[in-house]
Write a protein that binds this DNA or RNA. Structure first.
Ligand SMILES: [Zn+2]
Ligand SMILES: [Zn+2]
Length: 831
DNA sequence: AGCACGCCGACT
DNA sequence: GTCGGCGTGCTC
């Protein structure tokens, strides 16, 4: 073949690309790679592809091969969008693993993994950045053309850029312009997140060199007659050295100085003020500053972890509240950093407060990036790129930061590993970030996982007991802080008429009085108002249980029956309490608002705050409320699970758990584990620095084993008590669960479909399948729901084949006319 | 996810 | 008679 002939055979396709597009397709589709894109089409790059008649998507190339598809004509890739891959092989492998394990599609994983802006479409709008100036002569030819157009028009659609440039060059040029900050991708107001700003104090550049500073302090006339200002300046220099950047409010508080004194220094040009966002990275110097001493207990734990990680991939750090796990992580992170490796530090979303962020910034400055759902898409892309090119070494992030393109990952820390927010519930991919992180780490040469918790999940703890993970315990509170005294207020003693309907009983009220008298603060905890109506004995707190499933029964008002929401068995309603003979059951539930009202009546002089989902709906309301409370502008804080996380309240002397019985009767097989975790963490908020704190638990079941275990802080006993029950009733960690939710408009149809499915799995999974049952909330967005639960033995062979069987049966069911539109949602390892 | 195709009710 | 409701199926 001559050169001429080659030139005429451009439509001869030899290469094909398997592409993941952000859709719930059961398998990946294949597109043909035209000759002109052969060079550019690389695995991990985004490509623009047509699907159907008129849709265009940005997908990611997963695989390139030379096998022409047999059963269809592959369309050509329209364009390659990236000059270099946006994801590495390890991301593609993670996507595939998650899709298989959690029974969803790779497209769904991709949609969750990539920042929305990577899913660029031709309708995307570019906005000119007014701060970019007007001089674009430094840019390349094509970028120059687009920049000029942007300067003129202020906004351009991607299709319009396409008209300016040769169509194959659009995306590389646009990416370049975004990187140069000449334009950014338009975001609707709703998406935009204005980072929380704080005023920082900085030394004027004129005095950053030692000599000038020396002169200022000793001989300069500027400060000779302003002793207080000099004092403040010295204090500033001290804090700057020990803590790095310092905020205005912190400086004034710590130095005991006034606004006027600071203003004096600012006016004289010695210091200046600057508003900065705490969770943004660019201002902080890239330094490593781990200069604190570990306690002997911490040092020992650190050594043990190091030793274990030489042999095992995962180490569980079981450290009681306030034992100082974070300091240990900081040392481990430092080691990775010094080896040039990256570190992912996972935290539950609500623990990711500016307090937590600043604490790590103090040690790692600009090496740290933050990634969470409140970030705008533009910011996510920025962090994404910096992780990919290795300029960010540490990412402090919530669940979804697992998808970032790390290249040289040395360690993943998963703090509060028991936290339920690591599991994504809606929509797919319903993955568990902790478990997926362990898989992800295995893709790297030498990447270790450290799980940390004061109250480990039974899954992790039993893995540690079976030597699958290493286990290190830290049983000593840092600085030997006293553990709070845990008092149990027995509400059965107040059963006379005058106490009917009481929410805050005398012992708790009295303790609050005392705390307020001592000018200390109080936290009251109340569980989120459950939508689960149940029958609970008003006298002894007893709640009927399902004899098959060992969970609390729900009360169905309409049918006047008790029903198990796992297996669907119904029971007659209670008339007489089998535990105490009482006859009084139904009770109204109350939330934090009601408690807040009551407190206002009881303590009219106290300043009371409320922290729950509703009260902190705004962007920074959560941070703000924490700060207000920390500054002792509130006396009592009433809250739900939110008060449990990321708080470090010094002046709290009393924590009250208003309704322990409500917590203990939650209809979930993990109730006891959860209750212990919750109460243990709530207790941790009491008496952290100033004397012994008190925790008061109101309950009608003062001898409930979990309460005693909380009182003794005895996790091991809880574990030993609970595990036999898990085994007996077939629950994790002895089994693996898959929950199937069926959805349809017509109630009878879902019910029948679930029954059909149950029957169809009967022959092979008879002993493992529970249900069908109607969930408590049986209708969501006009769709009725039904559930089946699979309790599978822990053999990956059985689990894998069962997953296949389930998918096969879904397809089979959809062939049945009546069930065609029944949607089945599998949830693997529901939490 | 879209979008076309197709099958039934009520409207100029 | 046709218009438009949405349930169903398909997209490399
Ligand atoms: Zn009773
Ligand atoms: Zn049951």
């Amino acid at each position: 073949m001559t050169e001429n002939e080659i030139a005429y055979t451009t439509d001869l396709i030899t290469d094909y690309a398997e592409v993941v597009i952000p859709l719930a397709l059961p398998l990946n589709y294949t597109w043909a790679i035209p000759e002109r894109l052969k060079e550019a089409a690389v695995v991990g790059c985004r490509v623009e592809v047509n699907l159907g008649k008129s849709k265009r998507y940005a997908g990611v190339i997963k695989r390139i091969h030379k096998k022409p598809p047999e059963f269809f004509e592959a369309k050509e890739i329209v364009n390659v969008l990236d000059a270099e891959p946006v994801v590495f092989d390890s991301q593609l492998q993670l996507w595939e693993w998650i899709a298989k394990y959690y029974m969803c599609t790779e497209g769904e994983v991709m949609a969750a993994a990539l920042p929305a802006h990577f899913k660029l479409s031709s309708e995307t709008i570019l906005v000119f950045n007014e701060e970019a100036g007007e001089d674009f002569t430094e840019l390349g030819n094509e970028a120059f053309l687009v920049a000029e157009a942007l300067l003129l028009r202020k906004e351009l659609k991607l299709t319009e850029v396409q008209q300016i440039l040769d169509s194959t060059h659009v995306y590389p040029v646009v990416n370049y312009l975004i990187q140069q900050k000449i334009c950014y991708v338009w975001e609707s107001l709703k998406e935009r997140y204005s980072p929380k700003k704080e005023t920082y104090v900085l030394l004027s550049p004129a005095y950053t060199d030692e000599v000038a500073l020396e002169q200022l302090l000793n001989t300069d006339k500027k400060l000779q007659r302003a002793e207080k200002q000099l004092e403040l300046l010295l204090a500033y220099l001290h804090f700057q050295k020990t803590e790095g950047a310092i905020t205005k409010s912190a400086l004034l508080k710590k130095a005991g100085a006034t606004e006027a004194q600071l203003k004096g220094l600012v006016d004289k040009g010695v210091l200046f003020l600057e508003k900065r966002a705490v969770d943004r990275i660019r201002f902080l110097p890239k330094e490593i500053n781990v200069n604190f001493e570990l306690s002997p207990a911490q040092a020992k734990a650190l050594d043990e972890i190091r030793g274990i990680l030489k042999e095992k991939d995962v180490c569980l750090l079981h450290g009681i509240t306030s034992s100082g796990k974070t300091e240990i992580y900081i040392h481990l992170i430092e080691e990775q950093l010094r080896m040039g490796k990256q570190v992912l530090y996972l935290l539950p979303e609500i623990a990711l407060t500016s307090q937590t962020i600043r604490r790590l910034q103090r040690h790692f400055g600009g090496h740290i990036g933050v990634y969470h759902s409140r970030f705008s898409q533009n910011e996510r892309v920025e962090v994404w790129n910096k992780v990919k090119d290795g300029s960010l070494k540490i990412v402090l992030g919530a669940r979804s930061s697992l998808f970032l393109p790390f290249q040289e990952l040395g360690m993943i820390v998963c703090d509060e590993e028991h936290d339920t927010s690591y599991k994504q519930m809606e929509p797919a991919p319903r993955y568990h970030a902790r478990d997926a992180a362990i898989y992800f780490a295995s893709l790297f040469e030498d990447c270790k996982v450290v799980l940390g918790s004061a109250t480990p999940s039974f899954e992790s703890f039993s893995n540690a007991m079976h030597q699958k993970y290493g286990l290190v315990s830290l049983a000593e509170r840092f600085g030997n802080l006293a553990l709070p005294e845990i008092a149990i207020a027995d509400t059965r003693r107040y059963r006379t008429k005058e106490f009917a309907g009481t929410i805050l009983y005398p012992p708790l009220v009295e303790s609050i009085h005392r705390a307020l008298e001592h000018k200390t603060q109080v936290i009251l905890f109340q569980n989120r108002r459950g939508y689960t109506p149940y029958q609970r004995c008003n006298t002894c707190g007893w709640v009927p249980q399902c004899k098959h499933c060992n969970v609390s029964l729900n009360y169905h008002k309409f049918y006047n029956k008790l029903v198990c929401h796992y297996c669907g068995t119904t029971y007659p309603p209670l008339v007489t309490c089998p535990s105490c003979g009482g006859h009084d059951f139904v009770q109204k539930q109350f939330g934090t608002e009601r408690i807040e009202e009551l407190l206002q009546e009881l303590f009219p002089a106290a300043k009371i705050g409320r922290m729950d989902i509703d009260a902190v709906r705004g962007k920074h309301a959560h941070d703000q409320l924490i700060q207000t409370f920390e500054q002792q502008k509130l006396d009592i804080l009433v809250g739900t699970q939110m008060v449990v996380k990321g708080l470090d309240f010094e002046y709290v002397s009393l924590v009250g758990i208003v309704d322990a019985d409500g917590i203990l009767s939650f209809p979930d097989f993990r109730v006891n584990e959860r209750s212990f975790q919750l109460m243990e963490q709530v207790s941790g908020r009491a008496g952290r620095k100033h004397g012994t704190g008190q925790v008061m638990i109101q309950t009608a079941q003062p001898t409930h084993p979990v309460l005693l275990e909380v009182q003794q802080h005895d996790y091991q006993k809880l574990f030993n008590d609970e595990m036999p029950k898990r085994q007996q009733f077939g629950y994790p960690p002895y089994t693996r669960l898959i929950r199937l939710t069926f959805k349809n408009k017509i109630r009878e149809v879902v019910q029948d479909a679930a029954a059909w499915f149950f029957n169809s799995l009967q022959n092979r999974y008879k002993d493992f399948i529970v249900g069908p049952s109607e969930p408590v909330i049986n209708r969501v967005r006009n769709q009725y729901l039904m559930e089946l639960l699979l309790k599978l033995p822990r053999s990956s062979k059985i689990i894998d084949s069962c997953k296949k069987e389930v998918l096969y049966n879904i397809a089979l069911m959809h062939q049945e006319k009546r069930y065609r539109s029944v949607v089945v949602i599998p949830d693997v390892d529901p939490y």
